[in-house]
Nucleic acid binder design. Structure first.
Lengths: 118, 118
DNA sequence: GAAGTTACTTCCTTTTGGGAACGTAATTAT
DNA sequence: ATAATTACGTTCCCAAAAGGAAGTAACTTC
């Protein structure tokens, strides 16, 4: 059994933490929405995130709020609205989200190339 | 309803693609293992990734192989072994994994500070 | 006062995940 | 020679997570 460097192990454990915090099918998309588009209301989020239902949206938002990544504000409007936004801590995920976005854009280009090469 | 810039929308769709490719509970950890530690055998992966069972490991590895992110090689050893490694395409995820790792490390520091501040 | 909007919750079904046991093939221990 | 062990899975069955329809509540517009 080979020894594994402490540095790599620390990195690996850190990634495991991220996995746990962003567990669940929709958390990344919620954070991405708020990161890319800025603060949004409940219904706006549901319209932006394709396929999410009301149940999962509220459940995941609650978990993100508990973990301190998202801030929920009840607005004093005619029909009551609720604003969601990233906390400063949530905004610290921006580099991760941005790397995912740029990989995804490259991925799309790759798919297009594959199709035209056929 | 406000108009959303095409740029933001493209970013958002790209992130959605990443979400789909890395769907499932263990794909990120498998890619992280192979990215951080390099090529590994089936049993090594199971020992590295805390909590994963044989069923999920083989299922997720198969999906990653189908998507071209992981390469599977049956080795011609005494008791047959199987080597898994990232393809070049899989290695292109390194910046994403690294960003996750550095965020996770900062997160750990934050948790430690919170505890000592109490 | 009927219908619509916003922001959820509740209940039930479907999908996904997890674990134990089994299969196979070769190796090592008794 | 036989039993146990290692490596790499698959199968079956149960638990957990996700999805969908409908309900709730407060307020607004028609």
């Amino acid at each position: 059994m080979e020894k594994i460097s402490d540095d790599c192990l620390q990195k690996f454990k850190a990634i495991n933490d991220v996995k746990d915090i962003l567990s669940g099918k929709w958390k990344v998309m919620i954070i991405a929405s708020l990161s890319v588009f800025g603060e949004k209301r409940y219904m706006e989020l549901q319209r932006i995130i394709d396929g999410i239902g009301t149940k999962m949206l509220s459940k995941e938002l609650q978990e993100l709020e508990i973990n301190g990544l998202v801030k929920r504000t009840v607005m004093d409007t005619k029909p009551i609205t609720v604003k969601y936004e990233l906390t400063e801590y949530g905004r610290s995920l921006t580099p991760v989200i941005d790397e995912m976005a740029s990989w995804g854009i490259q991925h799309r280009e790759r798919i297009i190339q594959e199709m035209s090469a056929k």
